[in-house]
Write a protein that binds this DNA or RNA. Structure first.
Length: 565
RNA sequence: CGGAGCUUGGCGCAGUCCGGUAGCGCGUCUGGUUUGGGACCAGAAGGCCACAGGUUCGAAUCCUGUAGCUCCGACCA
C-alpha cells in the first residue's frame, strides 16, 4: 500500500547523477547515496536486489555450488602471506585502531584458508564454494552511481580441483552458469577474453554489457560473433603488401611535411604507403616502433608484448639523441644510435614505403621492409578502428564502451601454493589445489539492466527483476465510490492469484500517480477509474509497449496470465 | 594523484563580481475549491548560507585554511 510505503520518488533529476541508471535508481527510490561510492538500498530497491541474488543462488546451486558467508573483516597476516597487501596497495582498506585487520576486497585468501584446514584428499575434490557478500575497495574515484563503489556486493565463487582437466570443467560450468544468469536477468551481453592481470593465473574471460557508461572499450560485431577488448582486438585489415616495382631507396626533401597527413597531401603519397615511426622508452630503453600510415599504436599491446608497465613515449630531446632527427623525420633507416626496431604486423614484407630519413626535412621512399630495414619482430601493435572488417565474417566492427559485469578466471595454484592448501593424490603425492575464481557485481546487474531498459519516463522492468508484478492504481474517485470498492477487492484478489502487487491507494491526482507508475516501471499497470468502472472495466497498461487495453474485471486474471510472462 | 566545477530549508536553484542580517520553484502542514497525465486559492512551518580562522562597525558575499561531493584524466585484482 503506497499510502504508507517508503517510496520517495523524485520529480527532478538529482544534481549528482549523470548516467541514466544512476538517475533512475535515485528517482525511482531504489537507493540513496550516503557518501562517495557508498549507497543505501531503499525497500523497493532491496526487493530488486533480492531478485538478482535469488537468480544468482539458483544458478550457482545448479552447478553444484555451496553457499558460504565469509567475513569482511580479515586478518592482515593471511593477505601478507599471498603478497597481496603490497599488490593491492591503496585499494585495500586498513583499520587504524586494529592494525592486524583489513577489510576484504575479495576472498581468494579466506577460501584457500578453509580449504587448507579441511581438504586433504583428492577424493574431497572438486568443490564449488560461493557467497554473496559485501566487498570493500578504496577506489580512487567512485563513479556512475552504483557502477563503481567503495563498498559493493559481489557474488564470488571459487572452484577447487585436483587436476587441470577438472579446472577446465569447473570453469566451463561457471561460464554456462553466467550465461544463464544474465539471460534470465534479460541483459544483452557479450564475452571477451581478458588478461588476468595481478590476479595471476591462466585463462580469463569478462562478461560485458555495451553502455556509454562503461569503463572498457571493446570491438564487436553486431551479433557478437566477434568481441574483444581493444587491448587485444584485431581486425581483418589487409597488410600493406608489395608492389611489383621495387627500386632502390632514395632520399627526397620534405621540408614542410611533419605529419603523415602532410606527406599525403603535399607529396601525393598514399596514406598506407607511409610508415609512421614512434619511439617509446620501455624499462628505460629506447625502442622504435613502425606503424602503418595513421594507425594508432595500442599501449596495452605494447606493454603486453614487452611484459612491462614501465613505458612512455620519448620526449623530443630523446628523439634527437637516439635517431638524429626531430619528430616528423624519423624512420627505421640510418638511425643515429642502434636502437631496436619493431614493426606492426601490417608492415610485414611491405615495400615501396615512405618514412623519415632521420635527418630533419628528409624522407626515404621505396623502402622495402624485407630488404632495407632490420626489424627485430613484426608484432600486432595497432588499435582496431570502428568500421574495419572482422577477420572471419567480414562484418564491420563497432568500437563500443562496455561495463564489466562478470569475470571468470582460471587461477591455478597461486593461492593454494602461497597458503599451502594441498591435497594427496591417488599416488599419495602432495599437490596444491587447483583453483578458479569467478565474480559478478550484484549491483551492476541492476544498473546494466536499467541502462538497457528505460525510456524518457522511467524504468521498464521485466518479470525476472521487477520489484512487484503489478501496479494497481486507484484513481481519484469522489463521484464513484465503486472505484474504491473494486480497487480494494482487486488488491486482495490479485494477491490471492499469486501476484506481488504494489497498490497505489494514495490520495493523489492522476498525473502524479501515472508519472510515478511509469517512473517505477512495473511491467503492468492496472488502472481503476470512474470512467471505465461503470462498464465493469479496468485499464491495463503494458509499461514496455505503453499499449493500453480495457479489460472486463472478470477477465483480468486470464489477460494477465496470458500477457505477463 | 593531475585538471575543472560545486557546497545556501527535504529536493532543484538564485543571491557572491559591487559587504548592510536570505529569496524562488517543488515538497511539507492547515482550510477551501478541484479530480483520467506532475491542479488552483488563502495561510503557515522550515536555513549558524559545509567547517574553522581572519579583515570589517557589519560577512552567504572579501582573504586564508580545511572538509565533503561531482565530472574529465591517471588507476581499476
Amino acid at each position: 500500500r503506497q499510502d504508507k510505503y517508503f517510496l520517495p520518488t523524485l520529480k527532478e533529476t538529482p544534481n549528482d547523477a549523470v548516467i541514466p541508471s544512476h538517475i533512475l535508481m535515485l528517482r525511482a527510490a531504489l537507493m540513496r547515496q550516503l557518501g562517495a561510492g557508498i549507497f543505501s538500498w531503499l525497500p523497493i530497491g532491496y526487493k530488486v536486489l533480492n531478485k538478482v541474488m535469488n537468480i544468482l543462488r539458483e544458478e550457482m546451486n545448479t552447478i553444484g555450488g555451496q553457499e558460504f558467508l565469509l567475513p569482511a573483516l580479515n586478518p592482515i597476516e593471511i593477505w601478507e602471506q599471498t603478497g597481496r597487501v603490497e599488490a593491492m596497495g591503496d585499494v585495500l582498506f586498513h583499520i587504524k585502531n586494529r592494525e592486524a585487520l583489513v577489510l576484504a576486497p575479495t576472498h581468494e585468501e579466506i577460501i584457500t584458508f578453509h580449504a587448507k584446514q579441511h581438504i586433504s584428499s583428492y577424493k574431497e575434490l572438486p568443490q564449488i564454494w560461493y557467497q554473496i557478500q559485501t566487498k570493500f575497495r578504496n577506489e580512487p574515484r567512485p563513479k556512475g552511481g552504483i557502477l563503481r563503489g567503495r563498498q559493493f556486493l559481489m557474488k564470488d565463487a571459487y572452484s577447487l580441483d585436483n587436476s587441470w582437466e577438472g579446472l577446465d570443467e569447473s570453469y566451463q560450468k561457471h561460464y554456462d552458469a553466467y550465461r544463464a544468469i544474465f539471460n534470465r536477468a534479460g541483459i544483452r551481453f557479450f564475452v571477451v577474453g581478458a588478461s588476468s592481470g595481478a590476479m595471476g593465473g591462466k585463462q580469463s574471460q569478462e562478461f560485458m554489457v555495451e553502455s556509454e557508461a562503461g569503463e572498457d572499450t571493446c570491438a564487436i560485431t553486431d551479433n557478437y560473433s566477434y568481441s574483444a577488448n581493444v587491448e587485444v582486438a584485431s581486425s581483418g585489415v589487409k597488410p600493406v603488401g608489395r608492389i611489383a616495382e621495387n627500386p632502390e631507396i632514395e632520399k627526397f626533401p620534405t621540408p614542410t611535411a611533419k605529419t603523415i597527413d602532410e606527406l599525403v597531401s603535399i607529396h601525393n603519397i598514399e596514406e598506407i604507403r607511409c610508415a609512421k615511426s614512434v619511439v617509446y622508452i620501455i624499462d628505460e630503453k629506447p625502442v622504435l616502433i613502425m606503424m602503418r600510415g595513421n594507425d594508432e599504436l595500442n599501449e596495452t599491446k605494447l606493454g603486453t608484448y614487452f611484459k612491462s608497465n614501465n613505458y612512455r613515449p620519448a620526449v623530443n630531446d630523446e628523439l634527437v639523441e637516439f635517431t638524429g632527427a626531430n619528430a616528423g623525420s624519423i624512420g627505421p633507416i640510418n638511425l643515429k644510435t642502434a636502437i631496436p626496431v619493431y614493426a606492426d604486423l601490417l608492415l610485414q614484407d611491405a615495400n615501396a614505403m615512405v618514412s623519415g630519413a632521420n635527418e630533419d626535412g628528409i624522407h626515404y621512399k621505396n623502402i622495402d621492409f624485407a630488404r632495407d630495414v632490420k626489424v627485430t619482430e613484426f608484432v600486432d601493435f595497432r588499435t582496431v578502428q570502428a568500421g574495419e572488417p572482422d577477420a572471419n565474417s567480414g562484418k564491420a566492427l563497432r568500437v563500443v564502451k562496455a561495463i564489466e559485469l562478470g569475470h571468470i578466471f582460471k587461477l591455478g595454484t597461486k593461492y593454494s601454493e602461497a597458503l599451502a592448501a594441498d591435497f594427496l593424490d591417488k599416488e599419495g603425492k602432495r599437490k596444491p589445489i587447483i583453483m578458479g575464481s569467478y565474480g559478478i557485481g550484484v549491483e551492476r546487474v541492476i544498473a546494466c539492466y536499467i541502462e538497457q531498459n528505460h525510456d524518457e519516463n522511467g524504468i521498464i522492468w521485466n518479470k525476472a527483476l521487477t520489484p512487484y508484478d503489478l501496479h494497481l492504481i486507484e484513481l481519484p474517485n469522489n463521484k464513484e465510490p465503486k472505484v474504491k470498492e473494486v480497487s480494494e477487492k482487486l488488491y486482495a484478489d490479485l494477491q490471492s492469484a499469486g501476484y506481488d502487487v504494489l497498490f497505489d491507494d494514495r490520495d493523489e491526482r492522476v498525473g502524479v500517480k501515472f508519472n510515478d507508475a511509469d517512473l517505477i516501471g512495473l511491467p503492468f499497470q492496472v488502472v481503476v477509474g470512474s470512467k471505465n468502472i461503470v462498464n465493469n472495466q479496468v485499464e491495463v497498461k503494458n509499461r514496455r509497449t505503453c499499449e493500453k487495453v480495457l479489460i472486463n474485471i472478470e477477465n483480468l486474471n486470464e489477460y494477465l496470465s496470458e500477457n505477463y510472462k
